[in-house]
Design a protein around this nucleic acid. Structure first.
Lengths: 243, 243
DNA sequence: TCAAGAAATATACCTTACCAATTGAAGGGT
DNA sequence: ACCCTTCAATTGGTAAGGTATATTTCTTGA
């Protein structure tokens, strides 16, 4: 039941070579016919593999000239090294602005849906999902798809990185009333169409999260690590950005 | 200088049909040979197009059975409908916060590199590239990878959507001195480690861009369209968000 | 009648072989 | 020194046909 299509194996091999630095950024890959011979497949199969790499953004094909390694695999590398602190800070900045914007663009039905998530947040089973929906409704209420996808991307990041999931799990379970209180403050500000307060409330929400993350990591850390953490706490704080 | 490879046009057409609902989620596409006949290309070309769609996650190929439309084209659908206004507003909000953050996290060498881009901006040939680097250096200066990738994603969006490219081209060419002045104000604020001013300067920069975009679209629009544009101008304005 | 197995069919998979279009460099003429 | 032509290398694209796999249809036996 193997039977992966042949070009995928070629894609994997070429991608590995690019990763390894065998084909540096900007360099040209061997000609189609050479690759066909090396990997013992036909030329169309090589073409398919190269198209897959092209769609993935790893290479660029120049007609009559050759296939060249693209620069872009940097962002993929970046994604792997994002910490929970960075993610939270980014969400704080972006979602605070989204909340401020939403305060003036949100519609009644969205406001109603937002209030409903607050109620769902009191039930432990649906709390996490409600949290997600709460932030997503605000993002959608901005009526700006670019902001929405930015926030969705960050959420996806949180969902997909194991280390970040672990970090959040420690934090979310504790302080349920606090969590609801913060979300309620955000809701109230948006419902009152108060952009500045909405921004502040969202900042406050995430600032508490960041500090909770630090506390959690502190609890786990050894003494010498603890000292380092304190030093960098200031770097990821957002409290000084509010006014 | 057209000469896009043939399979891309097939990809576009198939994607459009999927988008349109001609091929609903879960349904099977016509056979290779049929598609080859319909679009008047060879079967390998059809195969290439399908592989591109597969890598993009739009379809799934089942050997011996057919190629089926995949469910998860949601976010891809969103990306297609982002207007230049939305993109600019999103950049305004996010990059303004990035600038505010960078004002307290930027290092001397980054500040130096930032100043260099200002000089390159005076040369028309390198102005656009310098613009890009200017914003990228600020993003990197935040020392937050999540913010960096968010900003990079938005830039990639600007680079890849033809309609957005067109909209920006009309605007960027005009008012070079103004553009440099705005960037200089941003630089000065960051160099002075003044977060609030940096945010304000970045807001100002993008706010001018948004209005220029509206003016450009107004110039092209007919009378009745013009009226509508005026009505929605308030929706994408960010001036009310600054303090 | 119905269910299980076998054959036929439809489909994607992969290859070989060929020609066309584009690029870039080498070479020659001014 | 410069420009133009030519030519080799490369990718772009096509045609035709055999292979492997999945699905459907048909046969056959209980």
């Amino acid at each position: 039941m193997k039977s992966r299509r042949r070009f995928w194996t070629v894609v994997d091999k070429l991608e590995a070579l690019i990763e390894k630095g065998e084909y540096p950024v900007g360099s040209r890959l061997p000609a189609e016919r050479e690759l066909a011979e090396v990997y013992d497949v036909s030329r169309p199969t090589i073409r398919e593999a190269i198209i897959a790499l092209e769609v993935r953004g790893r290479v660029e094909v120049k007609t009559g000239s050759g296939v060249f390694v693209t620069d872009s695999e940097q962002s993929g590398r970046l994604l792997k090294n994002i910490s929970a602190f960075e993610l939270t800070q980014a969400r704080a900045l972006i979602e605070a602005e989204a909340a401020a914007l939403a305060a003036s663009t949100i519609k009644e039905d969205e406001l109603h849906a937002l209030k409903q998530t607050l109620e769902q947040m009191t039930v432990p089973e649906t709390a996490d999902e409600a949290d997600h929906r709460f932030h997503e409704i605000i993002a959608k209420s901005t009526k700006n798809s670019a902001i929405l996808v930015s926030i969705q991307n960050l959420w996806e990041l949180r969902r997909s990185r194991p280390q970040i999931i672990a970090a959040y799990e420690d934090v979310c379970s504790q302080g349920i009333e606090q969590r609801i209180k913060e979300h309620t403050e955000i809701y109230d500000a948006i419902a009152a169409r108060d952009s500045a307060s909405a921004r502040k409330a969202m900042h406050n929400h995430f600032n508490r999260l960041i500090n909770a993350l630090f506390d959690a990591s502190e609890a786990k850390a050894l003494e010498e690590v603890k000292r380092k953490t304190d030093e960098t706490r200031g770097l990821y704080s957002i409290s000084h950005l509010t006014q």
